[in-house]
Design a protein around this nucleic acid. Structure first.
Length: 463
RNA sequence: GUGGUCGUAGCUCAGCUGGUUAGAGCGCUAGGUUGUGGCCCUAGAGGCCGCGGGUUCAAAUCCCGUCGAUCACCCCA
């Protein structure tokens, strides 16, 4: 047992999982770039006020889950519990032209008990679009999320959609809801029986039997929406219909961040058995900028938890690509200097290769080469070094055959190209090189100065 | 913050109701005639049995605490 281990709720990402995560990130970046979103990197900690005023001092995320601390200068800071508030803070600080379309990736921190798909440090990708109230922007954001998931191959997803209204209609609804809850407070679950007043909407999110029964008769927000909010939702829904993006209208989709107005949405993955099956979620936050001291800057965005997306892919047998090992492994039994030289040269030509260290035995190095997944070992011993040759050893008969075929059929064109492209190789004349290769056997001994070029060309042809 | 389950080698796990120097498979390292991988054979390294306390002649084993993991609640990605 190591003296130290990663703190509760955090984990180390090692290959191959780390590579799957890297793949998800670059895949996501390419995806949102199609819609002209650009990367914003904001600090992982902010003035606590950014979250208290932004996310909401009533929300659980702020009241009991925030990693806050006082720094050496007496500042009240907090590790970011989510990404949106930071992006809006950055927007207000720099005042870029609108619409401002940003994507981000990075860790978020919440002090809570870890379980399947929930960590104290987790990683999100997300986008935020600021400066427009257009419902077609809602469509763009939601479709980007849904389409990204389907492009990964995920199935069994449910898009839940709701509108929470705005400052015109929500207060009325809340009054109505509170009135209803007050009448039924004795029937609520023990927790909400006393706490429903602080945030009546939260009761709608409760999954306990008593609350579920009560909320069935509760007034629904969709019946209270003002004309503008109703029209906004109608346009969005019609656009989703038109593009055959399936959704479920969910009157109880409230979400725990206080800044949401109008559109809220969430994508749940049914193949995840755990109760943490939301792999992405977001909504519109037309009042957030004002809460952070800015003007009336509307916005909408989503975040998606990478750990959960990876779990979802795993549960559906989706194999995300990991980077392959180099195809070439250098074996040097003269001490290691030749491998240093050859690997340096190979890499300068863009050829990936690996080698062993510590002057291991030939057998040991070959074993390492084979296990590494390489298809070719380039071997140099004293005999080879004396003649400036290397020995090629293919790990499969198939590759060896193809290489011989390649040399015989492509031989003259390879050498012509060599002479044109690289002046340092102009001493190669086709006839004498052919003699050398014939002399040593096509696929075993090989002149060192031809190696990089020919191998590169061969690998290009075979892949 | 509340509750259930579980902590033995890098990994997956044996170790019965307490009883000698704690085991297996996989992985790792090195050998199997002087320079050739994969299969096979041999050997080796690697464990304060999570940590601390208690019961006992004796604890990996029983009891308590603690830390960690895991699952659920709450909430969220």
């Amino acid at each position: 047992m190591a003296l130290f281990q990663s703190p509760t709720g955090t984990k180390d990402w090692l290959p191959p999982d780390s590579e799957r995560m890297a793949y998800l990130i670059s895949n996501f970046a390419a995806h949102v770039k199609l819609a002209n979103y650009h990367l914003v990197v904001s600090p992982m900690f902010e003035d606590s006020g950014v979250f208290v005023r932004g996310v909401g001092n009533e929300s659980e995320v702020v009241t009991k889950e925030m990693y806050d601390f006082v720094d050496k200068g007496g500042r009240n800071l907090a590790l970011r519990p989510e990404g949106t508030a930071s992006i809006v803070r950055a927007f207000l600080q720099h005042n870029p032209p609108v619409p401002f379309k940003a994507w981000y990736v990075g860790p978020s921190f919440r002090y809570e008990r870890p379980q399947a798909g929930r960590y104290r440090q987790h990683h999100q990708v997300g986008i935020e679009a600021l400066g427009s109230q257009d419902p077609y922007l809602d469509f763009e954001v939601i479709s980007l999320l849904v389409d990204w998931f389907s492009s990964l191959g995920l199935r069994d997803l449910v898009l839940k959609l709701n509108s929470l209204g705005d400052e015109n209609c929500r207060p009325e609804y809340l009054t109505e809801l509170s009135f209803y809850l007050e009448q039924h407070q004795d029937l609520l679950c023990p927790e909400h029986g006393k706490r429903w007043q602080s945030n009546p909407l939260r009761v709608l999110d409760c999954k306990k039997e008593p609350c579920v029964l009560v909320k069935q008769g509760a007034p629904k927000i969709k019946n209270s929406l003002c004309l503008e909010c109703a029209a906004h939702l109608d346009t969005l829904v019609a656009c989703l219909d038109e593009h055959e993006i399936d959704y479920v209208l969910d009157d109880y989709l409230v979400r725990g961040l206080d800044y949401y107005t109008r559109t809220t949405f969430e994508v749940a993955c049914n193949s995840l058995d755990s109760s943490q099956n939301a792999i992405g979620g977001g909504g519109r936050y037309d009042n957030l900028a004002r809460a952070l001291g800015g003007g009336d800057i509307p916005g909408i965005g989503f975040a998606s938890g990478l750990e959960r997306v990876l779990l979802a892919c795993e549960s559906q047998g989706i194999m995300l690509p990991v980077s392959l090992p180099p195809k070439i492994f250098l074996i040097d039994i003269t001490g290691g200097g030749v491998a240093a030289h050859l690997s340096h040269t190979f890499r300068s030509h863009g050829l990936a290769c690996d080698r062993s260290f510590d002057n291991k035995s030939l057998k040991s190095q070959l074993r390492q080469a084979d296990r590494s997944g390489a298809i070719l070992a380039v071997i140099v011993g004293e005999k080879e070094r004396a003649k400036n040759l290397v020995q090629l050893r293919w790990f499969s008969v198939d590759y060896e055959k193809r290489f011989v075929q390649f040399l015989t059929s492509e031989f003259s064109s390879v050498l012509n190209l060599t002479a044109k492209r690289d002046n340092s190789l102009d001493r190669i004349d086709p006839e004498s090189t052919k003699n050398i290769i014939t002399q040593y056997g096509l696929s075993s001994m090989f002149p060192e100065y031809l190696l990089g070029f020919v191998i590169k060309k061969f690998l290009f042809y075979t892949t």
